[in-house]
Structure formats: structure tokens, C-alpha cells
Nucleic acid binder design. Structure first.
Lengths: 345, 345
DNA sequence: GTTAGCACTCTCATAATTTGACTGCTAATA
DNA sequence: TATTAGCAGTCAAATTATGAGAGTGCTAAC
């Protein structure tokens, strides 16, 4: 009977005895179905908006649907291809990658999406390159265990190319396997150990660390959150009321509130929080989906979807699973690549 | 008298005889002002929504305001600082820069903003670098006369670093001062001229050109447009009607329609088009601001603002002027840097 | 357990009414 | 001639009234 929740999720029009009859139970009378609906309401799965209306699921009803009824929904082939394409032709820049994933997840689900990158500063440095440019700037490339951080720094034109190569090598050998935070904090201490020939690099390191600090501040101020597809919230009839929509959209650009949703670890691959399960007052009539991408048991990134309680849970679960799967493939591929490389040694 | 347009732009409530009186003409009676308003209506600068309503400016009225009345508006210091900061600590990646500018212009004006980059493929190559990464990919950096284009390509791990250096040098010497389009089209022809020692690079060039072609296709499909701050349209009471808002927002992601606005050159530094002056049917009750950033008389990029006819023309003009000014400073700075460099030779 | 039938309730849509904000016009005034 | 007070007229927006329709709950019968 609660299968009808599925219909409601699609149509947004309340569940009535007669629409259940035409849907699945042609051989039962509406009166019988009414009795059933009555029972479900008594049990707290459904509620009436007013005496003579159909019933809509309660948070408890949605919860039951998510836990027990919801099946797998095949996603549109085009969307799957598009998601796959993003991973296949992926940019290695961490920031761009996060944007692209937030975009595509929002597009696939038709709700706003948030991606939260955890512990940016904890990323492990694998390689550092400082590439001088012709415009009086230099590009800082830090390859980490989960993508490249890139930033720019001002640079004087009169420094020879070799200096940049030496600086890059020094940084790579010194800070490889250290965290980004480590490098920023400790580079001062290493300066004394640089040796005479590296003294001339000091200027480079100072401006570089400045640039990195600015980048860290910027990321910290956003809490590591990237939200996309806010406009899609307006597609749901629940949010045709602009003020209501704005209250939710505002949360999406409020790191402090998002943190309450994404900060504590989540042991499940995909989890849903519905209504009052969400620890943010402005989202009490929303639902939030969350998927965590974990490596070695630790969550590296969280992807979240925010929408009305009547959200398409099944579709969202499928989409998030697919994305997390692509993440895992990527990591597996990199691991095997690395294996190849090691073998060649 | 038409100064009252200013008030209307701020308040969105029609101009009436009594609110003009309180505003500026305490010593005149409302009847007198009514006569004046009547005259202005007869001249086509104002119109009434209905018999007993106040008057709102017509497109002609706004036009007069923009051309003759509008003064300079000082912008909020914080916003100016923020804009300046973007140019000061600018990323040199063309794509990121465009995003940042669209974002800040939208924020400064409180309307959606569009940035159009013209003739992406016509950019002149100054330097090419292919930087191998540890993840089995390589970073392609093309420094051009107006910023860096970056892209990634798959790369085998077994190619020695020196090969990338040689390839970079070959590309730089061969295609420096050529356009990006040139390089993509003609690299085939140059392959025969590479000489025996460069034959082994062929694989690199093929994948690189593939990557670049994909990037070009992607940019071409967006028409070079980047729109940001679409949600801000909903702040204007004119667009509290969601359907109306959506029609405008849709235009912002429709390159074909945007092209009609930004394609023909615009001799003015800042121009406004109001209502029917806009060659897009869905924008007939909007206004569009446009600023062009020109180098040597040729427009490199256009920045556009789309909003209701009752938009804050003065503030927008100030913001756009400031941004264009920052662009010019940047270019001047680069030129002087280059001068320094040349002198040192 | 199921069902037909009927009274009941409440929303939504539409129509009628009232209110209030402005205007236009006229005639008087400076 | 420019200005003004005063008043009638108009229309939108808010308010209230009316009716139709969708859906339920309940009861009594099967």
C-alpha cells in the first residue's frame, strides 16, 4: 500500500483512495482502501492536510519507504555517460573536479547539490612544481594524494628558470609525504637547513607560502563546501514560494549550517535524513541525501543533495551510488597505474 | 522632475504626485506636480499602469535618465576592494578569471552577469608547456596574449621528462605568435618537419591535439559565454513571478540568444539597451548593460548585466567602469613589465 | 473483511463588495 | 499665466461571499 508513496513522489498530488484503486487495486473498492489508509494514518505513516484531502506521507512514511520499499531505479543513459565522461576526461585540479561533480550530480538528480571536501590541508603532498610564466607570475602545482592544488604567485622576471627547478626539487624532496598544512607551517624551520646555495630561493618560498596561505584561508572560509544547481530547487512545486526557497538556498551558502549536516562521519554509503532528522532549523521540511567517498575507511569527500521531503529518493540513491562508484574506479585505476610504474623500476 | 526616476529605481513603487512633493518639492502643491507629470506622460517619458495609479518610466523615460540625468554613484568600498583583489591576486587561467569576474560583477550589481570571451581560438600563443604529472596525465599550458589556457591529456608514464621539455620547446618555437586555431589545424603539416629525433613525440602531439580540440568544442558549444548570479534576478520584485524569471534565466544559458546581444561590436565603453532595443524576444521588458574591454580597438571580452528595466543604471555603470578600468591597469602593468624585461636584454 | 451509500468537510475557483490611493478636471486665486 | 484647492471618477487590491468538487468517515448491509 505504501508503494503509493512512489506515485506521490512523482506527481506531488496527495494519495487518495481512488487513485490507488486505478493504480494497482482495481479489484478492491475505494472504501476498503480508505480503511487501509486510515490504518496507515493511525500508525503515523500518512497524514491528511485537511479533512477532505488525500493523504501525504509523513517523515516516518518516507523513512519507511526509503528503508524498506524503495528499489533501484535505472538512470538515464545520457546522464550516466556524462558522469562517466567527467571522470574519464577528468581535470586533475581538485577545485575544478569538485565543481564538475557538484554540477553533474545536481543535473542528474534535479536538486541542488553540495560537495564537501574534507581536510584540504591534510592532503598528502606527492610532488611540487613551480612553473614560471611569462606574465611575471609563477604557477604553483602541488600534486597530492587526491588531486592537484594549483595557485599562482607573483614572481620577478629576473629569476633564472633553473632556480624554479631547484626550488621545486627542494620542496618535493623535503615535503613529499607530508601534509599541505605541514609544509605551510614548517617551511620557516627548513629555511635554515637550505644551505648557502638555496638562500636565493628564500624570496620564492616567502611569496609561495603567502599565496598558499591565502588559498587555505579562502577554502577555510567556504568550509570546503561547493554548492551548485540552487535554481533547481525552484522546479519542485514545494518551493514555488520564493521565500521558502530562499531560506533553503541560503543554507547552501552557509558553511556553518552545512557543517552540521556533513561534519559528523556517516558510516553508510548513502544516507538520507528526513525532516527533523536534519540538524538545521531551516531545513525541517526538507530531506537531505548524503554520500561519502571513503578511502581506507576515512571519508575524503561528501556529496549532498537537498530537496523537499518528497524527493526522488530512489533516483538520488542510484545517482549517488554511480558517482561514488566512479570515484572508486578512479582510485583503483590510479593504484594499478602506480603498480605498473613500480614494477618497471 | 524626471529625477524621480531615481527614486522609482530604488523603491519600485510608482511615481505619484505626493511622493514627489515630499521628496523635493515641498513648496509646490500636488496639483501642480500632477500637471507636470501629465505633460511628461504626453511626451512619452512616463506611463500609467492604470487610471488611478502612479506613473512608471517608459523605456524612453529610462533612456532619457541614462543619457542625461544619471550621475556617478560611489560604490561600496568593500566591493571595490574585492574587485581589486581579484585583479591583484588574479589567477592567470583564462577560464577561472572569467568565472571570477562574472561572479564579482553580479555581486556588485545584484543582477545576473554574463561574460563573453571573444575569439578564443584567435588568441595568440606566446609559450607552450607540457608538464607531466604523477597520475598518468599531463598538463598542457598555453600562455597566450590574454591569459593561460589549460587542459589535461592522458600520458603514458614511460615517457621521459626530457621528451616533454623538447616537445614544449618545439611547440613554442613553431607556434609562437600563431593563433590557437592555427596550431590545432596545422600541427599535422608540421609533423613531417619535426625531424627524426622528434618522431617519438608524435604520440604526445596526437593526444594533445585531441585534448585541445575537445576543449575548443566545449568552449564553442557555450559560445564563450559564462553566466553567473542567475539567482539574483529573483531579488527584483519584477521577477517574483517564477515563470517570468525562468524565461530570462533561460536566455542566460542560451548562447544563440546571447550572441544576438553581444555579437555586434559596440563602440561605447558602457552601453545600455532597454526594452525593445534588445534583439531577443524574451527580454523585451528587461534592460541589458554591456561593457567591452578593448585592446588596440578590438573587443576582447564583453561583460553584460541583465535585469529589469528598473535596474540601477548608475550603480551598474560605476561597477562596469571600475572593472574595465582594472582590466586596463592590468594590461598597462603587463606592458610595463615587458618593457622592463626588454630593457634588461 | 468488504462494500455501497450518504452526509460531511474543507479547498479552490469565481464572483461580488469594499476600500483606498491617485488622478483629472474645474473653478478660484495670486 | 502659473498655481492651487476641492471634488468626482477610476481602478487595483484586499475582503468577503458563494458554489462546485474532491475526498473522507461512518454506518449498515453483504
Amino acid at each position: 500500500m505504501l508503494n503509493a508513496v512512489e506515485d506521490y513522489i512523482q506527481s506531488a498530488s496527495p494519495i487518495t483512495s481512488s487513485n490507488i484503486k486505478t493504480r494497482c487495486c482495481e479489484d478492491l473498492s475505494t472504501a476498503t482502501l480508505r480503511n487501509e489508509l486510515n490504518a496507515l494514518e493511525a500508525m503515523g505513516y500518512l497524514r491528511q492536510l485537511h479533512t477532505s484531502s488525500g493523504r501525504v506521507p509523513t517523515a516516518k512514511g518516507y523513512r519507511y519507504f526509503v528503508n524498506s520499499i524503495m528499489g533501484d531505479v535505472p538512470l538515464d543513459k545520457n546522464i550516466l555517460d556524462e558522469i562517466h565522461g567527467i571522470f574519464e576526461n577528468r581535470t586533475v585540479y581538485l577545485g575544478d573536479m569538485v565543481n564538475e561533480i557538484a554540477d553533474i550530480v545536481s543535473k542528474a538528480t534535479n536538486y541542488p547539490a553540495v560537495v564537501m571536501l574534507k581536510g584540504f590541508e591534510k592532503l598528502i603532498i606527492k610532488n611540487v612544481k613551480i612553473v614560471p610564466l611569462m606574465t611575471g607570475q609563477a604557477l604553483i602545482l602541488i600534486e597530492t594524494n587526491s588531486g592537484i592544488i594549483n595557485n599562482f604567485m607573483p614572481a620577478k622576471n629576473d629569476i633564472p628558470t633553473q632556480t624554479y627547478v631547484d626550488a621545486s626539487n627542494f620542496l618535493t624532496t623535503t615535503f613529499s609525504e607530508h601534509s599541505v598544512a605541514d609544509m605551510i607551517q614548517n617551511i620557516e624551520n627548513y629555511r635554515t637547513q637550505m644551505g648557502q646555495d638555496l638562500i636565493e630561493f628564500c624570496g620564492i618560498f616567502d611569496t609561495m607560502i603567502d599565496s598558499l596561505k591565502r588559498l587555505c584561508d579562502k577554502i577555510a572560509s567556504s568550509g570546503g563546501f561547493t554548492a551548485r544547481g540552487q535554481l533547481r530547487l525552484l522546479n519542485s512545486p514545494e518551493y514555488h514560494d520564493l521565500d521558502k526557497a530562499k531560506r533553503v538556498i541560503d543554507v547552501l551558502s552557509n558553511p556553518a549550517e552545512l557543517e552540521q549536516i556533513f561534519d559528523e562521519p556517516d558510516e553508510q554509503e548513502i544516507s538520507f535524513r528526513i525532516g527533523t532528522e536534519i540538524p538545521v532549523t531551516d531545513l525541517q521540511d526538507c530531506a537531505v541525501a548524503r554520500a561519502d567517498y571513503t578511502v581506507d575507511g576515512e571519508s575524503i569527500a561528501s556529496i549532498g543533495i537537498i530537496g523537499p521531503q518528497r524527493m526522488d529518493y530512489a533516483k538520488i540513491a542510484s545517482a549517488l551510488k554511480f558517482v561514488v562508484g566512479e570515484f572508486a574506479n578512479l582510485k583503483a585505476l590510479e593504484a594499478s597505474n602506480k603498480g605498473d610504474k613500480d614494477e618497471q623500476k
